[in-house]
């Protein structure tokens, strides 16, 4: 099976942040289906995390839930230590967690309504969390002289269909953060890449988008639909695996061709 897919993720240890629901849960389950051991990080919804764990196990992999606020340095340190203790190391990290954000094209905040604190909060949520998690896992990855980090951004960084100022600015910073890290860690054998989905439906954050808006987005999308959480998982698995062993600092857009570059 491994040989056939070439992903070779069997037995690999993966930490997926924000994996209780939505995209994170889909990513975790996809890793488990390839035989990986998945640490399912969640912030508060224990039940959702437990459902992800069950889905992972049903998929043939191993998983367990780890509660931690990825914005807190001690919490992240403790989580990573636990993962390492439990599974003997960390091969792959997917930074998927982000600060809750209401995606609503009609009721979005206009620039004039925003406070610098809104930007700050989104920056902390996107870049701050990735920073804490990377800091904590790097010693483990260095020890093996290999590792793969995948950060979840958004296609809005290239094409702000809806100007979610604070959110998108923070995600654009996450892309730059990833590229700098890729540049520094390349020489020690650790890769850092991003996956930038378009509007993913359904997720908790996108439930409030209107059908008409979604229809218009689909009409503008070459592949004529919206991304499902599982669509995001494929490129994440690819970037995590040795199939992309010579790629780092890249952003893969998963939006049906809405953004082409």
């Amino acid at each position: 099976m491994d040989q056939a897919s070439g992903l070779n993720l069997r037995g690999k240890v993966v930490l997926v942040t924000g994996a209780g629901r939505g995209i994170g849960a889909a990513i975790a389950t996809a890793f488990a289906r390839e035989g990986a051991t998945v640490a399912v990080n969640y912030l508060a919804n224990e039940e959702a995390a437990a459902r992800t764990v069950v889905a992972c196990q049903a998929g043939g992999g191993d998983a367990w839930a780890v509660k931690a606020d990825v914005g807190s340095e001690p919490a992240v340190q403790a989580m990573v230590e636990e993962v390492a203790r439990e599974a003997g190391g960390i091969d792959i990290v997917v930074n998927n967690a982000f600060k809750p954000y209401a995606f609503d094209p009609e009721r979005r905040s206009r620039f004039d309504d925003l406070d610098w604190r809104d930007y700050q909060a989104q920056f902390d949520g996107a870049v701050g969390a990735a920073f804490e998690v990377c800091r904590a896992v790097l010693p483990h990855m260095r020890r093996r002289a290999r590792g793969s980090i995948v950060n979840i951004a958004t296609n809005l960084v290239e094409h702000p269909v809806v100007p979610y100022h604070d959110y998108t600015t923070a995600k654009a910073s996450l892309v730059a953060f990833s590229r700098n890290l890729a540049s520094e860690l390349g020489p020690v054998g650790i890769r850092v890449n991003c996956v930038a989905p378009g509007l993913v439906y359904p997720t908790q954050g996108t439930q409030n988008t209107r059908e008409s808006f979604r229809e218009s987005l689909m009409a503008a999308t070459p592949l004529r639909r919206l991304a499902r959480p599982e669509d995001v998982a494929g490129p994440v698995l690819f970037l995590a695996s040795e199939l992309s062993g010579f790629m780092t600092g890249q952003v893969l857009f998963v939006d049906g061709g809405l953004v082409m570059r």
């Binding site: 037995g11 240890v13 051991t37 191993d62 367990w64 390492a84 203790r85 439990e86 599974a87 003997g88 190391g89």
Partner: peptide, 11 residues
């Protein structure tokens, strides 16, 4: 020794 080899109770 086991942890360095990824051979934990879980694995």
């Amino acid at each position: 020794f086991c942890q360095r080899r990824g051979a934990t109770l879980r694995k």
